[in-house]
């Protein structure tokens, strides 16, 4: 099987490239979302910390709330669709957040609290499943597809450049020796 530079091959190449980019999209979206969140948090913190700044309208997050948010963002709400308990306002999520706060006040570490929920709900409760067993595919696949997408974009651009260079070379050759053009036409007729 060989893919020549025909229209079909280009179509297949474009299709594969689109597939690679689509599959890698969640990875980039996640990165962008995380960055957005960090920027938003920093902006609020900067506004609150700026000398002479007006008092913040938003209630300042206490250290305990920060820790509850950090843990709550890592746990999936059991009755919601793909939402962390930090983002959810369901009864279960609220109760889970209260329990996390109580455990933190009692001096339990983040790892111990996450283990508490993991022991009872399994991997399902974790927003980011551990990279072990079959789960490693979820972690490696978007990176792999992102790389594949980049390789395809580079291949595509390089092949176009090579084609243009070859075409220019042949045109130059024909211009220098018009006989070549006649030979090409004769070959085609044969």
């Amino acid at each position: 099987m060989s893919f020549g530079r025909t229209d079909n091959a280009k179509g297949v190449q474009a299709l594969l490239m689109s597939f690679a980019l689509i599959m890698a999209a969640p990875f980039f979206a996640q990165q962008a979302h995380a960055q957005e969140k960090t920027v938003a948090q920093e902006t609020v913190a900067q506004k609150a910390a700026a000398p002479g700044a007006k008092p913040a309208v938003l209630k300042t997050e206490s250290e305990l709330e920060k820790r509850v948010r950090a843990i709550g963002s890592k746990l999936r709400c059991p009755v919601c669709q793909g939402e962390s308990i930090y983002d959810s306002h369901s009864d279960v999520a609220e109760e889970m957040k209260r329990l996390i706060a109580e455990k933190l006040k009692a001096g339990e570490s983040e790892a111990k609290i996450l283990d508490y929920f993991h022991d009872r709900y399994g991997n399902y409760i974790l927003m980011e499943p551990p990279a072990e067993g079959i789960h490693w595919v979820i972690w490696v696949f978007p990176l792999f597809m992102g790389l594949m997408g980049l390789v395809f974009v580079m291949q595509f651009l390089l092949s176009n450049r090579q084609e243009a260079a070859t075409e220019a070379k042949q045109q130059k050759k024909r211009a220098e020796n018009p006989q070549t053009l006649h030979q090409d036409i004769e070959e085609l007729h044969l």
Partner: peptide, 8 residues
Amino acid sequence: IRWWHFTL
């Protein structure tokens, strides 16, 4: 190119 195609 063929190798990448097959892998993908």
